[in-house]
Each structure stands twice: as C-alpha cells, then as structure tokens.
Amino acid sequence: MALTLTVSDEVKALAPGFTHLTVEAYGLVNGPSTDDSSALLDDAARRLAERLGGRAPHEDPHMAAWREIYTAFGAKPSRTRNSAEALAKRALAEGGLPRINALVDAYNAISVAHLIPVGGEDLDRIAGGMRLVRATGDEPFVTVSAGEERTEHPDAGEVVWRDDEGVTCRRWNWRQGPRTRLTEESVNAVFLLEALGPMTSGELEAAGAELAESLEKLSPGARITVHAPRRAVPSA
C-alpha cells in the first residue's frame, strides 16, 4: 500500500510555492557506506562547488527561499539551517560530508548536488500517513541526547512532519527523529524531496530521477516508484 502524505492548509497558506516529490522503494539492501556510496558524496561535493562558484550556500536562491520560510514560521535560519544548507556547509568544509550508510549517503548526495532538502524514512516505522502541519506544541518528538532517549515538543506554529505517533522531523526539514530514520536494517523506504519557488518542477523531477537511479544501482532488484511532483495549492 502506498504511503499517504498530506500537506495541511495552514502550511499551504504559509508556502504556496512549496512542491514535493516522493520516491518509494521496496526491497532495498542497506548496509555500511561503500566505495560506491562514498563516490556519490564526493561527486556531489564537486558539483556543489561548481554550482556555487565561490558563493556561500545560503546565497543560492533556493536556499534563500528556505531561509525566508523558516523566518516566516518563527525559526532562526542562521541557527537552525534547513537540511540541504547544513549538508552543503559540511560538504565545503574540511573533512567533507559524513558517511552514514549506503542509503543515507545516496540521498545526501542528491541533496548536496541539487541543493534541495531530501529526507529518507523507514516505511516500516511510520505509523499511519505522514502529514506536514503547523504544530500545536503538544506533539511528542522523541530524540536522543547524550546517549539517552528524551521527548521534546515543537514550538507552537512550527512546521513539522508527523505521523500517528508524533513528530518525525522538526522545523520542516531541520532535524529528523531517530524512530523513522534509515538504518542498516531498513528494507522499505520513502524519500521526500522538497522544493520552493526558485526550483522548477523539471529540476525537482531530475533530482528524483537521479535518486531513483542511485538506489537501483545500490540495491539491484528493488521496486522503485517516482511519484510526480505535487504543489501545495491553498484551498479556496
């Protein structure tokens, strides 16, 4: 059964130019980072440097748009960067991008190469559908700090991804919770690519197609479906 994914009217009103694309994959084979997944990250860092041409990541028009949206719902974008900007900064810094596991490496590479927030969720750990909403402030967000599990709550009005159990990602695409993240045991996953106004549907589709191609190479035989971009149009 395909994952149900919805965007609330409050979020649509906040960001009418928001568009998202999902890639669903079943029968994946994950494991520690490989030479192939590491090469994807190295190539992504090279492409990012060419794209920016000496500029800082936040000077890219797409990253600037995300900063405006973060400010609109009360976040401080210089302190809590969207996932793509945070990865881009690491890609350009000494030491480069971290190697996590093969699947995470693959979607992080797409995020950096295309400067687009990309998330990966374990479909077997999602409770019900996923919803992008503005938080009430009461929703649980289970995270790990200093090796111990603890429960936080988002700020009221904060944009979050959530399922039936609670928040899966805070501040839109800033921090993912450990409950649904992709581990070396994950076999079924959904990848979410998120774009704002400066990024065209064609550019979003190209990023999704490249991710699907990488997944097919890393997990031959996996069943992969790229869903067409969906724009968050406010209700009349």
Rank of each mutant, 00 (worst) to 15 (best):
G31I: 04
G74P: 09
A88E: 03
S78I: 06
A39Y: 03
E50K: 12
E68V: 13
V104F: 01
Y26H: 15
K89A: 00
T80R: 09
L52Y: 10
D35C: 00
A93T: 02
Y70C: 08
D105G: 04
A75W: 01
H62A: 15
A45L: 02
G53R: 14
G54H: 11
P98A: 11
N101V: 02
T22Y: 01
A106Y: 00
E50T: 15
P98R: 08
G27L: 03
L41Q: 10
E94K: 11
L103Y: 06
A84R: 06
W66F: 15
D43E: 15
R47E: 13
A84W: 02
L48V: 09
L52T: 11
E59T: 06
F73E: 05
R51K: 14
G27M: 04
P32N: 11
Y26K: 14
L28P: 01
N108I: 03
E24D: 14
D36E: 15
T80Q: 08
L87A: 13
R81D: 06
L21H: 09
A109K: 05
P32K: 11
D43A: 15
L103W: 01
A75G: 06
L28Q: 04
P61L: 10
G74H: 14
Y107T: 00
D43L: 12
K89I: 04
A106R: 00
R55Y: 00
A75D: 14
D60Q: 05
R47D: 12
E94L: 09
P77W: 06
P61A: 12
L97M: 11
D42M: 02
T22P: 02
G95F: 05
L21E: 07
V29F: 06
I69C: 08
T71N: 04
Y70Q: 12
L40T: 04
R46M: 12
E50R: 12
L48C: 08
N101E: 06
N82V: 10
N101W: 01
Y70P: 05
A102G: 02
E68M: 08
Y70H: 08
K76R: 11
A106N: 08
D105S: 07
W66R: 07
D42T: 05
P32L: 13
R90N: 03
P98Y: 01
A72G: 11
E94D: 15
Y26A: 15
